[in-house]
Design a binder for these strands. Structure first.
Length: 276
DNA sequence: AGTTAAACCTGGTTGC
DNA sequence: TGCAACCAGGTTTAAC
């Protein structure tokens, strides 16, 4: 579910309400991708700092003292979402992490448990540093230019769709937005990354930024269960041009949209509008 | 070093 | 109706 827009929407929905909140208690449910790495009791009394996003991760500072750089790194995996509840209530079977604060209960719900909640003494120390270390550029980073994007793509022979999903060159686009951006840019997802011309690389970078920004405006995509921390769903899925639309006519040319599998993920595209 | 497959886990949908 | 097969927003790890 959660690609960059959904994670950023989630971040914005909890950052204001929780900044400066005091942790009263923490609770763990079933194991997630990795162990928390600290006794939940150790979180008691800590103060929540400004929440930041890197790729699809959220960093929640949990300070014991002003100079304390510790916190937890959160990932929503495939099916995770955060809810900020006004009052305490019993956890359901898929609620695997609770942070009870004096400004509400932050609850991670994640049926598939591909998500993660990891304690780190600092953002630039392990395990946080290791998890974030391999990430590619932030899509809206001004330092990411058409020239640098094109140069990076020149080193990759995999299909462009797989390179976008890998996340080690550019982060943020998952399966939905990678498909949508490639459609917008008119690029066949099977095209080898190193065969994109400089103009097409530039067009793709613009399409990625436009797609992610539009999704952000619409509150992300809610395919099944994504909600922001206040329970609002996203609306981008309603205007997706190709994602999940195999067999339906392309909105531009009317050709039947196709679904293929690349790197074990579905790719949706228009065989006429998107060229090699 | 770069690329691809397998693995993690649960639940909803599809098809026989 | 029952049950097997397939599908789903992600990423690490192992294997070529």
């Amino acid at each position: 579910m959660p690609e960059l827009p959904e994670v950023e929407v989630t971040r914005r929905s909890i950052d204001g309400p929780l900044r400066g909140a005091r942790v009263r208690n923490a609770r763990l449910g079933k194991p997630l991708r990795w162990p928390l790495g600290i006794d939940p009791q150790q979180l008691q009394g800590r103060t929540i700092g400004p929440i930041v996003r890197r790729g699809k991760y959220l960093w929640l500072p949990l300070q014991r003292a002003p100079a304390d750089g510790a916190g937890i790194l959160l990932h929503l995996g495939m099916s995770g979402s955060l809810a900020l509840l006004p009052d305490e209530r019993p956890p359901g079977p898929h609620d695997h992490f609770d942070l009870d604060t004096d400004r509400g209960l932050l609850r991670l719900t994640d049926p598939r448990r591909f998500g993660a909640v990891v304690w780190s003494n600092a953002l630039n120390e392990d395990p946080a540093a290791k998890l974030l270390g391999g990430l590619g550029a932030e899509p809206f980073d001004p330092a990411l230019t058409p020239a640098s994007f094109h140069a990076a793509l020149q080193r990759r022979r995999s299909p462009i769709k797989s390179v976008l999903l890998a996340g080690d060159l550019i982060v943020g686009a998952g399966n939905i937005y990678a498909c949508e951006a490639l459609f917008l840019a008119g690029i066949d997802p099977r095209l080898a990354a190193d065969r994109l011309s400089r103009p097409r690389a530039e067009r793709l970078l613009g399409a990625l930024r436009q797609t992610l920004a539009r999704a952000l405006e619409l509150g992300g995509s809610t395919l099944r269960d994504f909600r922001d921390a206040h329970g609002s769903s996203g609306a981008y899925q309603l205007q997706a041009a190709v994602y999940g639309r195999a067999g339906q006519p392309c909105g531009t040319c009317g050709t039947a949209l196709r679904r293929i599998v690349q790197a074990q993920r579905s790719s949706y595209f228009c065989p006429r509008c998107q060229r090699r």
